[in-house]
Write a protein that binds this DNA or RNA. Structure first.
Length: 485
DNA sequence: TTTTGAGTTGTTCGA
DNA sequence: GTCGAACAACTCAAA
């Protein structure tokens, strides 16, 4: 029996600055690289469609990157609690390593496997490959979990230096036998859409994988970072990092994002100000906070953090929900966002808030329905950030927006898409409308509409709800909620 | 223990 | 057109 090490990839599909991979490499022993697609239904939530497509591309890239270095990535499908012990009995590694996860179901899975392996005398070593601070390392001075972002983020950075990113090993030793009777091919995982291949337009917009992640970071530093504090709110400008799908699957390390952005400001590579840097880092902080909340409340995608929202009278209206999903609400900024999501698997952050506020407050549809749609269609849908952000908008979350903060879709559009470029791109049937009416086509007169080739109710919907009326109903519903609890 | 200040991202109304 | 206040209280975090 030759000693070998098993590296189990999960949400860390990279070779650069991957502590588990590095640990295995440093041992000098042959490495078994493993990825398990867990569709057992026993642990975490099944992946949405867009994420599955992304995962397929990412595994392809990771497999190539490992092969180039003389190793081999072996794929499996099913329950890791069965598969990992099976692999250990087949391959007899002396040690198993992985980077930690933070959802209770995942933690339980990993803990059970670790206990089982250690009972057989196999070493298990786990690492932080995902977060700046792991949730259990941060408690408030009164001993409890933080519930407000600002003190959380202050504490997270206090007395803590973000480690410098580590280089990738340039060659791996392969074990003599790396086959398994359980292994499957990537095609067996059936992650890509078949019948209608809706992923074509997504594939045009994204390059998944580690190289794509590094390129996205470089592009952001050189073209989006300067002015980030202001321009990050502008969906008509290329000023967000677009790193979220890569971070979701760990194709780039948080340490690298942190250090690269910091160094770029210090070295003068970018004109980004210290304020731009602070705001960008605090966005990374929100990701940390979401994982912190997920750790402390594993059912965050199902249960209101503020339980008084359990009594909220949500409307069950499939037609309205469908109009929202399809981008047919009659509010251009909302429809542009929903269509960006459908076409590219992504939506600008500002627009996410607008469409979420619209679903929850204008349509009064349960935030969980919106969260589910995002889960299925967003490439970056994350078990922490997605539900935490929806609850934030709903007002039911930790440190959430106050309920009376109801976005006005026309005002938001005028403020953040002032020339209507974003709307025109994703809602082309409005493209010929002047700036004056682009965010509210129903206010245009018949002459303007005809000249722009628009027939309201035919080529583009009239608003499915009236803003003022919807706003007042939402305020009344929320008010009733607070009286009875 | 009690107190105090603070808390991502907004809108509307009336002066 | 601009500006400040109201919108609701409440809970958290730390002194």
């Amino acid at each position: 029996m030759s000693d070998s090490i098993l590296v189990w990839f999960r949400n860390d599909l990279r070779l650069l600055d991957n502590p588990a991979v590095l640990d295995a490499h440093r041992s000098g022993q042959p490495i078994h690289f493993v990825y398990i697609f867990d569709d057992s239904g026993k642990h975490a939530r099944p992946l949405g469609g867009a994420q599955k497509w992304w995962l397929h591309q990412s595994l392809t890239r990771l497999s190539e990157d490992i092969s180039k270095r003389g190793g081999r990535l072996v794929l499996f499908r099913g329950d890791p609690e069965k598969i990992v012990p099976h692999l250990v009995s087949e391959w007899r590694p002396s040690k198993v390593v992985w980077n930690r996860r933070y959802h209770a179901a995942d933690i339980a899975c990993d803990t059970a496997i670790k206990a089982q392996l250690e009972a057989q005398g196999i070493a298990v070593k786990t690492f932080n490959g995902t977060l700046i601070r792991e949730p259990w390392t941060l408690v408030s001075k009164s001993g409890g979990a933080f519930k407000v972002f600002t003190p959380f983020w202050r504490a997270a950075r206090e007395n803590h230096d973000v480690p410098s990113p580590q280089a990738a090993p340039d060659a791996f030793a392969s074990p003599p036998n790396s086959s398994s009777n359980l292994s499957v091919s990537l095609a067996d995982l059936a992650l890509e859409p078949k019948k209608p291949n809706w992923a074509e337009s997504i594939a045009e917009a994204w390059v998944p994988g580690e190289a794509g992640a590094l390129a996205a970071l470089e592009t952001f530093i050189d073209h989006g970072f300067a002015g980030y504090a202001e321009n990050r709110n502008r969906p008509d400008m290329p000023s967000t990092s677009r790193l979220s799908p890569y971070l979701r699957f760990g194709e780039i390390s948080i340490n690298r994002v942190w250090h690269t952005s910091e160094m770029a400001v210090q070295s003068g590579r970018t004109k980004a100000s210290s304020e731009d840097l602070r705001v960008f880092q605090s966005e990374l902080g929100w990701r940390e906070f979401s994982y912190y909340l997920l750790y402390h409340q594993p059912d965050i995608s199902k249960i209101n953090v503020q339980r008084r929202f359990d009594e909220f009278p949500w409307q069950n209206d499939p037609a309205m929900y469908k109009a929202w999903c399809r981008g047919q609400t009659g509010y251009p900024i909302v429809d542009a966002g929903m269509r960006e999501l459908w076409q590219t698997g992504f939506m600008h952050n500002r627009v996410r808030m607008i469409v979420a506020s619209f679903l929850i407050k204008h349509l009064r549809i349960d935030w969980r329905q919106g969260e589910n749609w995002f889960w299925d269609t967003l490439l970056d849908a994350d078990p922490a950030s997605n539900p935490a952000s929806w609850q934030w908008v709903a007002g039911s979350g930790a440190d959430a927006a106050p309920f009376f903060r109801i976005f006005n879709p026309m005002l938001q559009g005028e403020k953040f898409d002032p020339k209507g470029d974003y709307v025109r791109h994703y809602v082309p049937e409005l493209a010929r409308l002047s700036n004056k009416y682009i965010q509210a086509p129903w206010t245009a007169g018949p002459l303007e509409l005809t000249a722009a080739g628009i027939k309201l109710g035919t080529t583009y919907p009239r608003p499915i709800v009236d803003h003022d009326a919807a706003r007042n109903s939402a305020l009344a519903a929320f008010k009733a909620l607070t009286v009875y609890t």
